[in-house]
Design a protein around this nucleic acid. Structure first.
Length: 575
RNA sequence: GCGCUCGUAGCUCAGUGGAUAGAGUGUCUCACUCCGAAUGAGAAGGCCGCGGGUUCGAUCCCCGCCGGGCGCACCA
């Protein structure tokens, strides 16, 4: 497709400006106000070099750059040169391109097949999957899809929290108060109960904490009795998690969690000793990062057992050796910023230069409103909202709405799942990931305005128009070469411009690790489509006009479905 | 206390070193004999937290405050 910025840069370029064509291309802006054209070139910065008023420079450039088949008009306003694209030419090109590429539109090959790892979701075994876990899960999944779309070879890793002192606690509690039957019936609920009780009792009997730590030491040493229980907890938990992953339509290539690295750590502890990085402090082994303002990274506890950082070092090296990644992305809460800084610094000090290819992608905290207070979720204190409940409630509400509207010709069970779950995912991917938010049922169950159902509705609406046309005998699959002069209206043209930008939006979202960029653009497209739909009658009698408009509808439908797909959301034909 | 982070319309949030700062929601209006009203149109609503600085130009970059959140050794 035509690269308009390139054409503009070519036209503007002149040795006397002291700028390369690439520099010029980078300076080209898209004006906020359409009246100012489709592209604009500001001349302020040239004033110094040319020692001339920017307004005059702009006038000169405008005079020189006028006239081209791609541009209807080149205009000078103040210090700007404004370029107006020929609407029909543009809309025709975009629609043709989208309809030619279909599901491929929006994809690119900047990644050139290089290896990327995305680590995400990573829940703690034996704890319920709550609304806080949705962030890493859904953001990570979208990043996987985005990186896949821009041409990388992506491996998805669920770095399960299946190790650590917490399992010592769980085992101690299970032995004291647990029962086989309870565990079989509702595993996570039972395990959570033991865990909660452990903490209550530990307030009175602090010696329980020591017992838990000892038990974890035995687990790490591979004692069969502890190992057997741990394996049972892990298996039962994973079965429950998979139920949620199935609902969300999410899968992984590897579930190698923390336990997977338990036997891979000694090598690095030795390496740290050999390089003199490891020092003893208060009975524990640490790497002193005080010179870097990062405190101390604890590698082994005074009882000799391992910690989070230790396991993450082992995991990173394993992945580098096993996958030889170009980039390794960790989708983990911002609460762990310090951990990741410490961990990267230790890797760097150890001489692993590829440490710079590991990126922590942090996201903000989900909290709960507790009366007048806003509090962090706490599994221990029973202050949680379960993700499965949220998904089920959203699905149930969707089914109610569909029954109320008496939607015809659909499987309500199937579509209400697509829409209800889509609503939850979309909501999660709407805002900048770094922002904290307070969970609210009202918000997650709102289906009006900038929501998933709104975008899906728009898709269903476009589908409906195409169905109507097909029923009237129009061959929607091959609309032929269209007469784009019918696509010159404000609303049609605005829509075409948004469709045009999709490939660059996808690339930007991947580069910035920010799925919400796609979500926002998708909302813009849906709004623009709905405006077009209201402004103009599509199924008109005139054959040529109808074909042109239908091909824009078809292109819009394709783009909406593709973008929803990148976010992990379905695009139903009817709802 | 130190570090990181956020602060934009009543509420939830976009936004970019540039032209008059935008959506959604809520409130008040209007539009279904017409391709799907989970929709569209309009009204109202802003010292872009405060004070300095850099710049031709700052909501955006730098410094200092104020306010919220998170983190700061045997949890992960």
């Amino acid at each position: 497709m035509t690269d308009f910025k390139e054409i503009i840069a070519e036209k503007i370029y002149d040795e006397s400006l002291g700028l390369s064509q690439q520099d010029i291309k980078g300076m080209i802006e898209i004006p906020a106000d359409e009246k100012m054209g489709d592209y604009a070139f500001p001349c302020f910065r040239l004033a110094k070099v040319l020692r001339k008023a920017p307004q005059l420079i702009a006038a000169d450039i405008a005079a020189k750059a006028g006239g081209s088949e791609a541009f209807a008009k080149v205009e000078n306003v103040n210090a700007y040169v404004n370029f107006f694209i020929d609407r029909a030419y543009f809309a025709g090109e975009v629609v043709e391109e989208v309809n030619k590429l279909g599901p491929e539109y929006g994809r690119s090959d900047c990644g050139q097949g290089r290896k990327v790892i995305v680590e995400y979701s990573s829940p703690n075994i034996a704890k319920p999957f709550h609304i806080g876990h949705i962030r890493s899960t859904v953001i990570g999944n979208a990043l996987y899809k985005l990186y896949d779309a821009v041409g990388y070879d992506v491996t998805r890793i669920n770095h399960l929290g299946d190790y650590g002192t917490q399992f010592g606690k769980m085992i101690v509690a299970y032995r004291k108060w647990g029962s086989e039957e309870e565990l079989a019936k509702e595993p996570i609920k039972a395990l959570l109960g033991y865990y909660t009780r452990f903490h209550e009792e530990a307030k009175e009997h602090p010696e329980l904490e020591d017992e838990a730590r000892e038990t974890f030491v035995r687990l790490e040493a591979g004692e069969p009795a502890e190992l057997e229980l741990w394996e049972k907890f892990r298996k039962l938990s994973l079965e429950e998690f998979n139920r949620v992953y199935d609902m969300l339509g999410i899968t992984f290539d590897s579930y190698a969690g923390e336990s997977f690295y338990s036997d891979k750590m000694p090598r690095f502890i030795q390496e740290l000793k050999d390089t003199g990085l490891l020092v003893e402090s208060q009975g524990a082994q640490i790497v002193d990062l005080e010179p870097y303002g990062l405190g101390a990274a604890m590698i082994t506890k005074s009882d000799g057992s391992s910690l989070y950082v230790t396991r993450d070092i082992a995991a990173a090296v394993y992945r580098k050796e096993h996958y030889d990644f170009y980039k390794c992305i960790y989708v983990v809460a911002s609460q762990q910023n310090l951990h990741f800084k410490q961990w990267k610094k230790v890797l760097q000090l150890m001489g692993y230069e590829w440490e710079k290819d590991c990126v922590h992608v942090p996201f903000g905290l989900v909290s709960l409103s507790d009366g007048d207070d806003i509090k962090m979720m706490s599994t221990r204190e029973g202050r949680v909202v379960f993700l499965e409940d949220v998904l089920n409630t959203a699905v149930a509400k969707t089914a109610d709405i569909m029954r109320e509207k008496e939607v015809q010709g659909v499987d309500i069970d199937e579509v209400s799942r697509e829409v209800g779950i889509g609503a939850v995912i979309f909501q999660e991917l709407s805002n900048n990931k770094i922002k904290d938010y307070v969970f609210s049922w009202d918000k997650v169950l709102n289906f009006d305005g900038e929501t998933g159902p709104y975008v899906q509705y728009t898709h269903a609406r476009a589908s409906s128009v195409l169905r109507k046309a097909a029923a009237a005998g129009v061959d929607v699959d091959s609309l032929g070469s269209i007469d784009a002069s019918y696509l010159g209206s404000d609303s049609a043209y605005a829509l075409a411009k948004l469709l045009y930008r999709v490939p660059e939006v996808v690339i930007e979202a991947a580069e910035k690790y920010e799925p919400s960029i796609v979500t926002r653009h998708l909302v813009d497209i849906a709004q623009s489509f709905n405006k077009f739909y209201h402004d103009e009658h599509i199924l008109v009698d005139d054959e040529k006009e109808r074909a042109a408009k239908l091909s824009l509808v078809k292109a819009s439908k394709t783009v909406i479905a593709n973008c929803l797909g990148l976010l992990g959301i379905a695009a139903p034909e009817r709802m």
